[in-house]
């Protein structure tokens, strides 16, 4: 028996919004430690890794490890049927071929359940090595989303250059070129407005705007985003989900031919 409850459907809706543009389907691996999903996008350029800890749920029970392959478009249709302040419970029997989403209104007067067929997904699981990154940048998630959106107008790719002084995002194309420089902040009132740079070695890397913009769909989940970079390895874009876990996106850099 598997049962996971969140007192507020908003979080789950936001999580799905953060992954459904990149992934058509995904396997939710459930164990007593929580729920994990790891999947590459269709073109195998990026990887999504979602971790939701069992202690972050309002109720969590998982008697046996369970892998539930879900069509994320179908899951989105179902979650649309939940009000933001509904309690959502995800339930499945052991070895079941369906999963049930139950939504309860705050006053308990409306209870709905939606059963969805599970899929057998033959997805590759990738081992992600522990990496000490040369540069780790923490910045407001809204600011990152804004920069990705703005620079995508000028080029298919953005160059991220990180030094001790700051981080620079650049794009150039037919129209011209664009540069956005962010300096590390000192003495900001609110932690969520801070820009913090931890640098061992400077890095310059090029990434596809299309994917960065897809990652920023997670912005509603977190005030801050963390970018981890080293030469010649994938960028990690991490959004923490308060008290529940995190979503990490890995993006392969563009390389010289």
């Amino acid at each position: 028996m598997f049962e996971a409850r969140l007192n507020n459907a908003t979080t789950l809706k936001k999580i799905l919004d953060a992954i459904k543009d990149l992934l058509n389907e995904g396997t939710f691996d459930c164990s007593d430690s929580g729920i994990q999903l790891q999947a590459m996008d269709n073109s195998h350029v990026s990887l999504v890794s979602l971790t939701l800890r069992s202690d972050g749920f309002d109720k969590f029970r998982c008697d046996r490890n369970l892998s539930m392959g879900m069509n994320l478009g179908s899951m989105a249709k179902i979650l649309k049927c939940a009000n933001n302040d509904d309690t959502v419970t995800i339930k499945a029997q052991d070895n079941a071929d369906t999963v049930t989403f139950m939504f309860e209104s705050q006053n308990q007067e409306k209870v709905s359940d939606y059963e969805m067929k599970l899929m057998n997904l033959d997805q590759e699981h990738l081992g992600i090595p522990e990496t000490d990154y040369s540069c780790v940048v923490r910045m407001p998630a809204m600011e990152f989303a804004r920069i990705c959106r703005d620079l995508a107008q000028f080029s298919e790719s953005v160059v991220i250059c990180c030094t001790k002084e700051g981080v620079k995002f650049s794009a150039s194309g037919d129209v011209g070129s664009a540069n956005v420089k962010l300096a590390q902040t000192f003495n900001v009132d609110k932690e969520e407005e801070a820009i913090v740079i931890e640098m061992q070695e400077p890095v310059v890397l090029t990434f596809a705007c299309r994917y960065l913009n897809a990652f920023t769909k997670a912005t509603p989940l977190s005030n801050q985003v963390q970018l981890s970079m080293s030469a010649d390895v994938p960028l990690v874009v991490e959004y923490r989900i308060a008290e529940l876990g995190h979503i990490r996106y890995y993006l392969a850099p563009k390389i010289e031919d």
């Binding site: 590459m40 195998h44 350029v45 990026s46 990887l47 590759e124 699981h125 990738l126 081992g127 992600i128 090595p129 790719s157 090029t206 596809a208 390895v233 994938p234 890995y250 993006l251 392969a252 850099p253 563009k254 390389i255 010289e256 031919d257």
Partner: peptide, 14 residues
């Protein structure tokens, strides 16, 4: 000229 590499080049298949 830059090309997009695949994420599979960086991680091992479990």
């Amino acid at each position: 000229k830059q090309t997009q590499s695949s994420i599979r080049n960086y991680f091992t298949v479990k």
